[in-house]
Nucleic acid binder design. Structure first.
Length: 478
RNA sequence: GGCACCGUCGCCAAGUGGUAAGGCAGAAGUCUGCAAAACUUCCAUCGGCGGUUCGAUUCCGCCCGGUGCCUCCA
């Protein structure tokens, strides 16, 4: 089966037919840089990063564009609050974005345009709309006239008359119609401003994506992504603007990820129920968060909770544990790429990913493969295993993990990082632990089992788990 | 009020018109001084009621419950 993707526009999975040159253009709405990223931002970034990785795996020539919205009301008010320039605000949070997202193994997109670097492109589009009578100036603002676009509401399945009568649509004296939205916003004295044919101002939010998508990917491109909350009005408006300018639909596939919930409620700034990535990283490994985020389908809501992260960490630890054991046996031996490509695990995972990026099934398949790997390891330890089989399984396992952006670390590094996180959050006394382990080993050598068990009970109470191996006693936390 | 979506084992989570992947937790076993880890085995009839069908968890209708969008939002 070839790739099928759910298209918000049709509410159906559709065959994703590549262009003859196998090129794919994908635009994803990034973040407005006025604060630290929370888990909701991470989900969107991880979802589209996973899609990006998979498209590349299918050997598409992908141009992936993800923007930064670096001018907007919230940025201006944040600058006022912090008594700094708006540029300082955006720089600070763009830096923080890279720091926080980088830890989630998010690959760098092909292009990362900023809105303020594309004012001329936006002005061009606005001018074209005004010339055609699809947009109008009013008191220094420029609005898009929604009634000029027949297809309005198609993406969000909204009825234009119902929207018009909707009580919640803001009433603005300078608009001709309540649904009209701003393309260019007149600036007040002291606010950041750019010159335009309609006076000093700044762009409205929606026009930046239309302008940047068009500049980097053309009048019509393959995939446009973002969180479900962007469907209306942002993406609906984008379609209206772009169609107004080019006369053709800007996007073939609209792809939207579901929300991150806390207790079944959407994580959001206004509800105050959000967790920033940096807060989470104090207690959890970023890769754990990534595994958690790919454990459900990208369109479903996902409930963020301590328990779910703990479950994710257990899975990931088992993965790395097996890899550590396998590496010890294989000693850096490399599998043939062609053989790995034909491994059933990979074939099955491709089938799952081809069906609208079903990452949960990929994880299920990885868990099954994990059992096969551990079984082979057991056999090898008993002298009857097939080392070559193990080699190929492990290579396929790593490759598939890589599709999800997982397992790119070394097992030692991962284990050490988890250890450090737990050690500091539990405040463990390592010297005391090692003393107890030494005492226990002495007791064991003297076959003083009750003394040995006493030591271990004490360690258990501290959250330390012991593992007696032929190489000696190892320990881990919790 | 309008428009969408969701309701699968104790918890998380896939899925299909022909009797339901995977993970966590739990139970039993192998291994172990005892454990841990690993492995083996066990562990659900899919919110309710009707309908379509030879057959529905999967399609349709109604009901109940939950969420989202309609304003900035990943």
């Amino acid at each position: 089966m070839s790739l099928r993707i759910f298209n918000t526009l049709s509410s159906k999975k559709e065959a994703f037919d590549p262009s003859p040159e196998n090129r794919v253009g994908m635009y994803v709405c990034g973040v407005t840089v006025y604060d630290y990223c929370h888990v909701g931002h991470a989900r969107s970034a991880v979802v589209f990063d996973t899609i990006f990785r998979y498209l590349k795996h299918l050997e598409f020539d992908v141009t992936y564009v993800r923007n930064f919205t670096d001018i907007d009301d919230k940025i201006i008010s944040r600058a006022l609050e912090e008594k700094v320039s708006w540029q300082e605000v955006t720089k600070k949070y763009i830096d923080a974005f890279y720091e926080d997202m980088g830890q989630l193994y998010i690959e760098v997109p092909t292009v990362e345009p900023k809105a303020t670097d594309h004012i001329p492109e936006m002005l061009d589009m606005i001018a074209l709309l005004v010339d055609q009578g699809k947009a109008y100036e009013s008191g220094g603002d420029v609005f898009y006239s929604v009634s000029s676009f027949g297809g309005y509401g198609q993406l969000s399945k909204k009825n234009i008359e119902e929207l018009q009568s909707g009580a919640r649509v803001e009433v603005n004296e300078s608009k001709r119609d309540a649904l009209d939205f701003v393309l260019w916003k007149k600036s007040k004295p002291g606010e950041p401003a750019w010159d335009s044919p309609w006076g000093a101002g700044r762009p409205g939010w929606h026009i930046e994506c239309s302008a940047m998508g068009r500049k980097y990917l053309g009048d019509t491109f393959d995939i446009h992504g973002g969180g479900k909350d962007l469907v209306f009005p942002h993406h609906e408006n984008e379609i209206a603007q772009s169609c107004g300018v080019t006369g053709c639909p800007p996007v073939r596939f609209w792809v939207h990820n579901g929300f991150v919930n806390i207790d079944k409620e959407k994580m959001s700034k206004s509800l105050g129920n959000f967790f920033t990535l940096r807060d989470i990283y104090k207690k959890h490994h970023p890769e754990t968060l990534r595994l958690f985020l790919v454990s459900s389908h990208y369109r479903s809501p996902i409930d963020f909770s301590e328990k779910n992260l703990e479950d994710a960490e257990k899975v990931l630890s088992r993965f790395y544990e097996a890899l550590a054991d396998a590496d010890e046996v294989l000693k850096g031996e490399l599998a043939s790429r062609d053989v790995v490509r034909k491994h059933p695990l990979l074939t099955k995972c491709e089938e799952a990913m081809n069906d609208d990026f079903n990452t949960s099934v990929v994880l299920a398949l990885m868990n099954e493969e994990l059992r096969a790997i551990n079984t082979e390891l057991d056999k090898i330890a008993r002298g009857s295993g097939d080392q070559n089989k193990l080699l190929v399984c492990v290579a396929a396992f790593r490759l598939v993990g890589g599709l999800l952006g997982l397992l790119s670390s070394s097992p030692e590094k991962f284990k050490r990082e988890i250890f450090d996180l737990k050690k500091s959050s539990l405040g463990l006394d390592v010297a005391k632990i090692e003393k107890l382990i030494k005492d226990r080993d002495l007791a064991r050598k003297g076959q003083d089992w009750s003394r040995a068990d006493q030591c271990r009970d004490e360690l258990t109470q501290m959250g330390v788990v012991l593992e007696d191996t032929p190489q000696g006693t190892e320990w881990k936390i919790q």
